[in-house]
Design a protein around this nucleic acid. Structure first.
Lengths: 109, 109
DNA sequence: TTGACACGACACCATTAGGTGTCTTATTAT
DNA sequence: ATAATAAGACACCTAATGGTGTCGTGTCAA
């Protein structure tokens, strides 16, 4: 039913800073070929291609061939899994914040 | 000022499923010694200890010695960095959702 | 005071991760 | 027709990761 045919853990996919930068780049344009995605980085095309492959395995990126180039586009949907995971813990820093505010109010009296 | 003296990337720290399970365990109790944290896992004490060290480097865990045991407690605050990161992208799946809803409404006419 | 326990500190090992460079093959421009 | 471009497919290398087992030491209980 859902996209459980993902080969790679989303948490794993976003762990690498280079991959997060790639996601950011793709968020700013609709679609981008590999060579353009490679340009901003200080590494070879092969390396960037591998990172994109990992993002693809996590379902975070889609690709299609157009002529001689392979264009990539972002698919942010799988990031929701992380949001869901975070939701469970958000109450922790929220309660902490609440307590901190209480303390600050006490002190200001 | 802030806790930028973190040795380890939070994204990296939560990438490992074992470490996410540890975080979950610590979320359910106030404080827990290493040997109790080790019990639920299918691996040795040393391995779990290493994972906890990584969580500690990321600021996600605090530890203190009590007698002969080392007790760990969760510090969820650094997870906020991930929430902030996600916030930027949430608009993507939100717009997708909006479009999907539009399509479904069209079909129901 | 003698064990048993909880743990840190190593040394060690296999696998994965993240790079590199080269070769080949489509595709496009001249 | 030819040359340049874009990229896949490999082979390869090094460092980091995620485990293991053992040894030594402080602490608690009998």
């Amino acid at each position: 039913m859902s996209d459980n045919n993902r080969l790679r853990d989303v948490f794993d996919a976003i762990a690498d800073p280079t991959r997060r930068r790639l996601i950011r780049l793709l968020a700013e344009t609709d679609e981008m070929p590999l060579h353009e995605l490679t340009a901003p980085f200080n590494m070879g095309r092969t390396a960037v291609s591998k990172h994109l492959a990992i993002l693809k395995e996590a379902g975070l990126v889609l690709d299609r061939k157009v002529g001689r180039e392979t264009r990539f586009r972002l698919n942010a949907a799988p990031l929701r899994e992380i949001q869901d995971w975070l939701a469970f813990y958000s109450r922790f820093w929220n309660t902490n914040l609440r307590r901190l505010n209480q303390l600050l109010e006490e002190e200001e009296k």
